[in-house]
Amino acid sequence: MTATLTDRYISATVRTLPQDAQADVRAELSASIADDIEARLDQGEVRQDAERAVLTALGDPDVLAASYADRPLQLIGPRYYLTWWRLLKLLWAIVPVTAVVGVLIAQLIADAPIAETIGTLVSVAIGTIVHVGFWTTLVFIILERTGADTGERWTLDALPDPQETGAGRGDLIASLAFLGLAAGALLWDRSIGFVLVAENGVDIGVGLGSQTTAMPVLNAELWPWWLGGMLILIAFEAALAIAVYARHGWNTGFAWLNTALAIVFSTVILHLLITSQLFNPEFVDYTLDRGDVPPEVGRILAILLGAGVVGVSAWNAIDGWLKSRRSVAH
């Protein structure tokens, strides 16, 4: 004899219930369904139609089973959703960028082919985004089903800080001081030199200046055009800082200007670095060409320096946009 629709419905329902509840639910549900069908038969329905109507009204057996077993019918419910989303956003903001930058530096140091480097970077970026998303979500799906407590309670302390507009007097002073130092350092290096070189050992009984010669770090040939350009960039940055202060905040125009300055600055530095024009050849010989330094060190240092310059410039540009967006929101 083939199983009736009712038998199949009940089996589909109790299948996923805990073992100890299965027999009880099976017996109770079959009695309830039989009662319901009987009531419909009393009203003159045909048995087949009555059975179909009763089972259809009960709906998807998996939903019914979830209701019996008190199982959630969502991956992550309201209890964990915000914790999950906040954590995921934080991890997505940190992990892929860190991984990509790390791999980029490693590939550059290994001097891997450009195509291979690009391919690796794309797959690392996609891979970390997917992995971070998957594993974080999996942890929260398990939390949702075990009912564990994440220990996160909202308190007033969690209110976002009033965000810095980046347009205060402190910001202006810090920017101008930093830019002034940078300009001063360039000029000092140009006119006197940063590195003190002693021909022989240093005698502490004599003044430092009389037994050493100062050596500029940057290439003397950068003067006047490149260095002058740098000083103009610094002047632009200073003007931008003053304008931001005067206008009481960032706006889209400032952010564009800031981004352009950052791009120009990092492009110039990278160009000089790649064409080996940035540093004073004497200084490079003195530090790296001493026989005991492996030849790769200079290249690796150049890559790290280049990555550092691009990273700082990129952050500077992004920071400008964030601040302009915030001051629009205010």
Partner: peptide, 23 residues
């Protein structure tokens, strides 16, 4: 019992579905 209660509820004016009442 289950189905009888469903009918009682309906008679008293409480519209309950079988698939919410039994669980």
């Amino acid at each position: 019992y289950g189905y009888g209660l469903l009918e009682d509820l309906a008679r008293h004016g409480f519209a309950a579905d079988a698939n919410t009442l039994y669980p």
